[in-house]
Design a protein around this nucleic acid. Structure first.
Lengths: 205, 205, 205, 205
DNA sequence: GATGAATGAGGATTCATTCAT
DNA sequence: GATGAATGAATCCTCATTCAT
């Protein structure tokens, strides 16, 4: 089942410590600025030991990214089907979704940074995520929960960009809780910024 | 007046070519992955010439960031006063603002990436920008153009994150024009995503 | 106990070889003219190995100087107390002292050159040495073995300068033995050059 | 008459400034540590101008050394013949000689350091100087002014080493005057250090 | 005579990676 | 499984020197 090493208990432990250390260092300083020696220092091992578990520095990056993708898949699969919601439940559901994403990001903050900033696949991953969101949005649109006339790809980008930026700005440093942040974000995304809306902007019958 | 070198026309040219080349390389490959030799190759000079104009690789990064900040300041100073707008003019004005930002980002795309991803000051700069936007939002809010009950800091982050992400996604690669993108973004940000709004969400008298 | 590296026998050996090689090269060609590549070549290692043991080229110089100072301290501590000598024993004792210094210099010839010519501390070290000699001279003076009317600082400088210069000139290249050289130097320093001395220059009663 | 350049007045001036600057820098920091850019900076010229007057950095060193040798020759030629002195005049004469040498060194302090420390010819020059002194000593010996039983080469080394070291130590930094230093040195060199001399050490008849 | 620009050939230092134990 | 020692291939930066004006 296990991919490469980790035959023994102890080896498994070491390998894990290396992954954690690498995630942290990559997140803090970036892939290039992080030296293998930094990683092993943080993991309490020697350089040579690193190569017992990973064939190269790049390899551990890929593994971290792979792990993130795996987490993401798990998270994505827990996604709800949407169609059955009553219109009045949509806002709360959406708010909850945002909170869930925030919680997910918080739990994987190091991996997030690695996957989204340091990985060569960053762009691809970004699009995977916004793709998921877009798909979800499309379902909601089909269900009539989302306004006509919106570009759904932009909507998706807007949702994720806002969540992601807000997480970096207030969530990861503990300045705001996932719950509060989710409310504030939802409030903007759901009803927009403007105080006044044009005359003809009425709810569809 | 002139900072360091470049007393003569030719020197000025060389210095400029180096800045451009560095911006491009940093934007494409990142600061660390970019070698000084890459920069000078792209600029058609030798390594030694680089150090005629910049004391170190880091220095040219700072200069690029400084240049971006300068551009930003120029752009920011051209910002409109907001209060006098009639409510009905607000949406169009806002759409125009977004288009202006997009155009600014497009014109400085390399610098944007350098300043926002590669610079040690990235976070600071990010906050400078969102700070500007937040300030603008606050003025609009005072003028009654923006809904009550929104967290303005989140609004600002939302605006910039969306614009920035969209620029990276569709503007820089030419998939969408600034004008179109601005419309699509404005549409989301102004009125939100939801098709239905709660009963009590009525325009204030 | 051990300073930096060299936990194992082999490492210790390598570190030592580097020190020796550096001493030799610095002594032969001077600090600046000696390349790290010269040192490692002479030590049979690669450039990178050098930095396993020393953080910089300058660092190995300091260590060499430190080693010299250490040797010097050891040598200095073995210095005799002087007061108890009978006047008739003083010349022989002094001659012996000179020979001891010569032998010390010979044994540490590379270090001597490094410490006295190549080190930034050269002046300080020079003064340390002459300081020791001056102190010794002062004791001898208090014991009545040294003439009145001499500037003891000049005496010390004279002694060391002569010994040092003579070592460079005849000892290090094997042209004269320490024993012979000590005799010849002592002969000059003890009784001076002049054949005739003034009438009133009589031994004190 | 002039060697290389210096056709015009201004050129001559520039060339001279470069020599002076080089002497000073070499003396202060050593040949290798001194950059051509240091020299020209101190001389108020550009790097390219340097090569108008000297084919290389090494060349200016040689010229400085040559200049020193020239000065030395001039100084040496003014040396007195010695034989005719009455024994009672010898000490004063010798003291005067020492003072003259000190004065010469002081006047050429930069060149001295360059020639004696930084030049590849340093050893040769050193021997030239001690050779002169030895020759002078031999004359004095022949004239009966110098004791039997001394190794004249050691005597010469002793004289010069003492003078040179003392100059570096007290003369160049102004702590002692040439006159005073000459007295103190002469006192040691002439009669030695010991307070008591053996019974049989009597002036020769 | 003098300059600003430019360069070629290093030189110190770093770092991912391998080897022997 | 783990280590200390060692390495090769860069990479940044320097500096004496040349060129065009």
């Amino acid at each position: 089942m296990s991919k490469k090493r980790g035959r023994t208990e102890k080896g498994e432990k070491s390998r894990h410590r290396l992954m954690e250390a690498a995630a942290e260092e990559f997140a803090r300083s970036g892939y290039h600025a992080t030296k293998v020696s930094d990683i092993v220092k943080a993991a309490g091992l020697t350089q040579a030991a690193f190569y017992l578990y990973f064939p190269s520095k790049e390899a551990i990056l890929s593994e971290l990214v792979a792990e993130f993708k795996q987490q993401l898949r798990v998270f994505g699969d827990s996604g709800s089907n949407v169609t059955a919601l009553a219109p009045s439940d949509v806002p709360a559901k959406m708010r909850q979704n945002i909170e869930d994403v925030l919680t997910f990001l918080l739990k994987n903050r190091e991996l997030v940074r690695v996957a989204l900033y340091e990985s060569p696949e960053a762009t691809v991953i970004h699009e995977e995520i916004t793709g998921l969101i877009r798909e979800n949005a499309r379902k909601n649109w089909l269900a009539g929960h989302i306004r006509e006339g919106l570009a759904l790809d932009v909507v998706a980008e807007c949702i994720f960009a806002t969540i992601h930026a807000s997480a970096e700005r207030w969530l990861f440093n503990g300045e705001k809780s996932a719950k509060q942040l989710a409310s504030e974000i939802a409030e903007v995304l759901q009803y927009g910024m403007l105080a006044h809306r044009p005359k003809n902007d009425l709810p569809k019958a």
